[in-house]
Design a protein around this nucleic acid. Structure first.
Lengths: 418, 418
DNA sequence: AGACTTTTTCCAAGCCTCGTAAAAAATGGT
DNA sequence: ACCATTTTTTACGAGGCTTGGAAAAAGTCT
């Protein structure tokens, strides 16, 4: 059931869309905000002024104007440009992956301030131990960014954790992760208890499209991100409202069945996409190992590069491994496109280094499996650094969460106290 | 970008949720509406009173109360029960399928008033010819329901067409249909031009979950409908807001690839779910025909019943055909569940008569293809009459569209003129 | 210095929701 | 038969939000 609205709700909603506009156009004016949001000039001005009073937005002094050329020979009162105020709040993006926990601190304007990584196996850790590691990393980045003093760390308003593995977002728990031995670890509440900050827990691949959240056109047309690495994962943002993307939970693309009874996957099933397209699958296929062998050890990226080079040099078995991988990915994508709709694709992860080898067979797989081959011509983009993309995505999600909170309630101007 | 809200928007929204409440609880009171929607008593009363003035809602006279027992020995002023007024408007649900065009007239309260069918091949028809058939059928049902007089037929406020085949909802066109020879037929505008009534065009299978739109719990938990007949189709309603379900367009479940390079499908691809689970696939498999043979003719339902009976009697080849079909369905569902989430299932269509034969292998297929076999235990429901379900769905969609229009603008009380 | 232009702020009008008070309509007891 | 009680419904003023127009502010151009 939809919930009711009232006057306050209207204000909250309109504050929200103004903030959203500020996120997309990083610098704007009151008039531009009014035009873009459809609000009247009066309302847009009232809202922006309130946001300035609340310390969420600042007027940019002329001195800082990095584009004075725009204002040459224009008559009339010059516009006051406004932007989100970085110091208004801070957010933490955290990654939990096999062998590594990492944290990035960003300010409210979205600029990254500091990162810290702890390379360690957390296989045996419980929720509190993981929360401890993350809290320590937060201390590190906070002090690195000189936010160490007590009242300053309190300005961190939101933490979003991107986890490799299946999560339960509503409970903030890790249902299952390759990085962990035990299941159902309630990491969200544990971090909240330790830091006193609100925490969101998401699957890293599902979260990835959020990295393009305020890129304008990217998300408006919908978007799917595909991570090819030790596993295979996908994130989907349906066209239109980026907020609805929040609903989709567990797109376990890597474990969509490709070939019934096929190659053995780490998950125990047979024939998953991952069992053909992940690093370990390409490795075992290129090495001529039987498709029942599970390679549990961590695979060095340089090894994958070597196999790719062998394939590029024309070695049949290596080339065949990449072709098989591409076909599995293509069939999987064709199935998704048949179910949802063709979407532009963003590839990332170590496997994306071999897109020259994969692309032809991916497109062929889509053509063979989608109705009328639709979607075989969607645009491909490659983002090499998957970890950075995950950080971006988690940061954007955290900022969006914060926006919602800030829009909901007119905050007291605590900055006045300082 | 989200759009702004203002006071009028608030009223429209709140009117909407009151109407929605009236749809779910067919009879209610002002107080109950206030409680359910979260609105204050004043506002709920103001809105309901306005709806009554606008002729959308009626107060039920005591004489009509079918449950006087509820009001026994209760003190205080008795409540005025209210309900949607059937005569407020009328809607048309139309089905376009192979060999058949059918139409149902319903009133604003959702009660079906009349149906009419024209059994004919429309293979060579263009948009205007199809629109002509539908318009004629509308005349038939309108006169049957004694709405023939000119001002009365004008009370039909919305037409929703459920098409067998792929549609483009935004343009109101049939991209491709097994019932038609030509592609991209803009049926929506053609019907609008002929009748002057707003038209929505949807795929029949995608629309089906709308049949459960106001069933309370059904949609709240999400739902997938699966039609097994001459083809295989699916409709998905994601958990939560039933309105967002509107976004999903072309869930061509039947053409999700099941087995790469497998049995030949009518669509020309190999290995689609449909090529194993549709009527024609079961027929060819049970008959020992090669998996490359395409059966184009319409298959009589009694023939399928006969094959099912042979399978029940233990004939190996027939039983094997159903098992193969169930496995293909199960793998397809497992893939969907892996991508989206496990959902309760509603089966319909001629194939649902053989659910006793299919269910075990469907569940096995899900178990083998979904991560950790999740979703193998979702509840199955069978609705035998697929055509009726499609009618229900199209009617509900049309009523929902109308609700939105009526909620948006306070209409003049045209009933006062009568 | 004055005219002109553009941005920003200020203010009364119009909606909407909400809480409270008053009116309406039935029951139960005397 | 009449009055107190109970519950629903309506009426009304308060407060918040958006809006359009007027006024003020802050520049450029002649």
């Amino acid at each position: 059931m939809l919930s009711k609205t009232d006057a306050e709700g209207v204000r909250a909603h309109n504050r929200r869309i103004v903030i959203e506009h500020l996120r997309v156009r990083r610098r704007t004016t009151r008039r531009a905000a009014a035009d873009a949001t459809g609000l009247s000039l009066s309302s847009a001005a009232a809202i922006t002024s309130a946001l300035i009073r609340n310390g969420l937005v600042r007027e940019i002094p002329e001195a800082e104007e990095d584009a004075p050329l725009a204002r040459v020979g224009r008559r009339g009162r010059p516009e006051r440009r406004i932007a989100l105020l970085g110091e208004a709040a801070y957010v933490i993006a955290a990654r939990v992956a096999v062998g590594e926990i990492a944290v990035r601190l960003s300010d409210y304007a979205g600029t990254s301030l500091a990162e810290a990584t702890r390379e360690t196996s957390i296989a045996g850790f419980d929720a509190d131990a993981i929360a401890g590691v993350i809290a320590a990393l937060i201390e590190t980045v906070a002090s690195e960014a000189r936010l160490a003093s007590c009242d300053r760390i309190g300005r961190i308003g939101r933490i979003v954790v991107a986890v490799q593995g299946k999560v339960d977002t509503s409970r903030g728990s890790i249902v299952w992760s390759p990085a962990l031995k035990t299941r159902n670890i309630e990491i969200g509440p544990a971090i909240e208890a330790r830091t006193g900050i609100g925490v969101g827990v998401e699957n890293d691949c599902s979260l990835m499209p959020e990295g393009f959240r305020w890129d304008g056109s990217s998300v408006r047309s919908g978007l799917a991100t595909i991570l090819i690495g030790f596993g295979v994962g996908m994130g989907i943002a349906v066209a239109g409202d980026p907020f609805t993307a929040r609903q989709r939970a567990s797109t376990e693309f890597g474990h969509i069945n490709h070939y019934p009874g096929g190659a053995l996957c780490r998950c125990g099933n047979r024939g998953c996409v991952e069992a053909y397209a992940a690093d370990y699958a390409i490795l075992r296929s290129a090495g001529g190992a039987p498709p029942d062998e599970i390679i549990a050890r961590r695979i060095d990226e340089s090894l994958m590069h070597a196999i790719a080079d062998r394939a590029r040099a024309g070695e049949a078995q290596a080339a065949g491994a990449f072709e098989t991988a591409g076909l599995a990915l293509g069939y999987g994508l064709g199935r998704v496109f048949t179910l949802i709709d063709p979407l532009p694709l963003v590839f990332t992860g170590s496997g994306s280094h071999a897109m020259d080898l994969l692309e032809p067979s991916i497109r062929r797989g889509i053509a063979e499996s989608a109705v009328a081959g639709e979607g075989a011509d969607v645009p491909f983009t490659v983002v090499e650094d998957a970890d950075a993309l995950i950080f971006d995505a988690a940061t954007n999600r955290a900022l969006g969460d914060l926006d919602q909170v800030f829009a909901a309630s007119e905050r007291e101007t605590r900055d006045a106290a300082e």
